[in-house]
């Protein structure tokens, strides 16, 4: 068994077998992370650069920890404190890094398709850690891992993706992945934040009433409102968004069943999620973060095996 691809650019390129292989390998790495020594020597001859052209806390730390837990050598690059600020092109920067004998590149970029461009021009393996509004594959994998861990299945699971669908790479990767794994998907949020072609493109349900969406689903994956990607006002105020689409304890208790609450972070508290939900008993937000390391270890491990 091996992955069908040399890079992890998006869930779009993965097969169902690939996804199952990553998730089952991640389960074994999760066990490694419970041991007294949380480290294995698998990638001790591999050098990985984390190339972050966009800010990140969780993803960058999660990747770095995953790399170190696999015994890889790690280089960190943040665009804000590098020569990229002097105008060096992406390709020049990466070729310079690769001439220092680097095997894999983990990359986040604000331009959609940046890692795909790089994959065409350089020999190293590339893992997309989020590109613009396109994909964030490892987030979708860790979301799926967490959903399956909590509910025991993906097939037939009803998942509502709620909030800023338009600007969310997490949403797109989740939709690709859950579709491939046979889950049922609904997107919910204000009409201005849901792309109008989404039903045609993916054949998924759209709901504008948050309560109806929550009543339908088993799992609610709540997304962050991405103010940094909205050039024009798409709803009148954060307060109004919270009133119409925010999720609070009272709303959850009015449902006739228990649902699982997820969020990829960082949370805008009091906007898409109130604190009594984010920190409440139905939330698995911190489990997601914990699982993120195991899932990224699996992706890195399986891709390192594909390199000659």
């Amino acid at each position: 068994m091996e992955l069908s691809t040399r890079h992890l650019l998006g869930i779009k390129d993965l097969t169902k077998d690939d996804i199952n292989l990553i998730l089952s390998t991640a389960e074994q790495f999760k066990e490694v992370l419970q041991r007294p020594v949380k480290k294995v020597p698998s990638l001790r001859d591999v050098t990985i650069v984390n190339l972050f052209y966009e800010n990140s806390t969780r993803t960058r730390m999660s990747f770095e920890l995953a790399e170190r837990r696999l015994s890889a050598d790690v280089l960190n690059f943040a665009a804000s404190s590098s020569s990229a600020a002097k105008g060096e092109t992406l390709l020049d920067t990466v070729n310079n890094i690769l001439s220092m004998k680097v095997d894999m590149v983990v990359m986040r970029h604000s331009a959609s398709g940046a890692p795909h461009f790089l994959a065409k021009h350089i020999p190293a393996a590339i893992i997309n850690a989020g590109d613009g509004i396109n994909e964030h594959p490892t987030q979708a994998l860790l979301d799926a891992f967490s959903m399956r861990e909590k509910t025991g299945r993906l097939e037939g699971l009803k998942v509502a993706i709620i909030g800023d669908i338009m600007h969310s790479r997490v949403a797109l990767s989740n939709i690709y992945l859950l579709t491939k794994m046979g889950a049922e998907i609904m997107v919910a949020g204000p009409p201005t934040l849901i792309p109008k072609y989404i039903t045609d493109a993916f054949g998924i349900r759209v709901e504008y009433n948050i309560k109806k969406a929550l009543e339908w689903c088993d799992v609610a994956n709540v997304l962050r409102i991405q103010l940094e990607r909205q050039n024009q006002p798409l709803f009148s105020s954060l307060r109004e968004y919270n009133i119409a689409y925010g999720i609070n304890r009272r709303l959850l208790e009015s449902l006739k069943k228990e649902i699982v609450i997820m969020h990829p972070g960082p949370i805008n508290r009091g906007v898409e999620l109130d604190s009594d939900v984010a920190d409440g008993p139905f939330s698995i937000i911190l489990n997601q973060v914990e699982n993120g390391v195991a899932v990224r270890m699996a992706a890195l491990y399986l891709l390192a095996n594909r390199q000659e």
Binding site: L21, S24, Q28, F29, V40, S42, A304, N305, Q307
Partner: peptide, 21 residues
């Protein structure tokens, strides 16, 4: 014990990991 992650031929061939307990 599963030893997949400790093999000395990790880069040559891929082995599916089993559970360690």
């Amino acid at each position: 014990l599963d030893i997949t992650f400790y093999r000395d031929d990790v880069r040559k061939s891929l082995h599916v990991a089993n559970a360690t307990d």
